[in-house]
Amino acid sequence: MIHVPLLEVKNLRTTFSTELGQVTAVDGVSFQVDSGETVGLVGESGCGKSVTSLSILRLFRKHSGTRLTGEIFFEQKELLQSSMEELQEIRGNRISMIFQDPMSSLNPVYTVGNQIAESLMLHQKLSKKAAQEKTIEMLTLVGIPSPDKRVNDYPHQLSGGMRQRVMIAMGLCCQPKLLIADEPTTALDVTIQAQILDLMLDLQKQLQMGILLITHDLGVVAEVCDRVLVMYLGQIVEEASVETLFENPKHPYTIGLMKSIPTIDGKRGKKLHVIEGIVPSLHQIPKGCRFAPRCPLADEKCRQHPPDLFEIARLHQVRCWHHERIGVGGVAFGG
């Protein structure tokens, strides 16, 4: 039997028209997510993580001048070619999204109950009353105290953690097969973060969902992901299982990201590692390897020729000319 992934993104390119011309925010990204699997998508701000996730459901305004090419298969159905009606059938139903900022992602003028019930009435064709009951059930499931009262609250009456739980309840109420979580815990306290992540994983087990977790927090990745995609400036630069990535990172950018994590046994007063330079603008993409201007290993070849993704082991790909020079644990690496 041929293995069919739940989600398969092939050579996705997302371009925007801006006043300064066309920019390609996502450039030739390919990856897969299986049922029950958690895939992390990591990278700095502006590397194209969120645009990738929005591209899957084509969540761009109609006249915004966004162009999507490539192929996205979800349960073998191509999403980029689907009609808007077909897509609306999938959005919030088969594929759900949880957004970064629970403060601004809920509509301030409707009760949270109304906003959850709306999905249920739309996709599951529940009556108003049944949707209300199911909403209370979902609020209980995500751990909101006295859900029968909270259901009538407006978002501004809830704390940040509660709002994110509401977002999760909204995302999961139709029992989706794929959950795209775009930095779901970034805006929350560390203790709440752990609770929310546990909750997502619990529900994943129950529903056998695939999760695409977008984050810049490698700690979160280490804790919850099975596989990791590292993005830099619109491209995937490394893909590996979470163990491989942490034990044997092969891309200088991945190594840089890992070194930037402060450790508890590190010397106090010692400066934290930073990756030199800043992410270049999408208007001025380097000619060769996109990371070359910031890379300690870069040479003339890197500056002139963009590397492809090399498959260096089973399920381990890296986009670097010098991956062979980097040993286990990222050693033999300057800095």
Binding site: L54, L57, L59, L87, Q88, E89, I90, R91, G92, N93, S96, M97, F99, D101, S104, S105, L106, N107, P108, E118, S119, L122, H123, M167, M170
Partner: peptide, 11 residues
């Protein structure tokens, strides 16, 4: 953002 949320719900 809440408009994007509404669209992501499939409305």
């Amino acid at each position: 953002n809440y408009i994007r949320t509404a669209e992501a719900k499939g409305l």
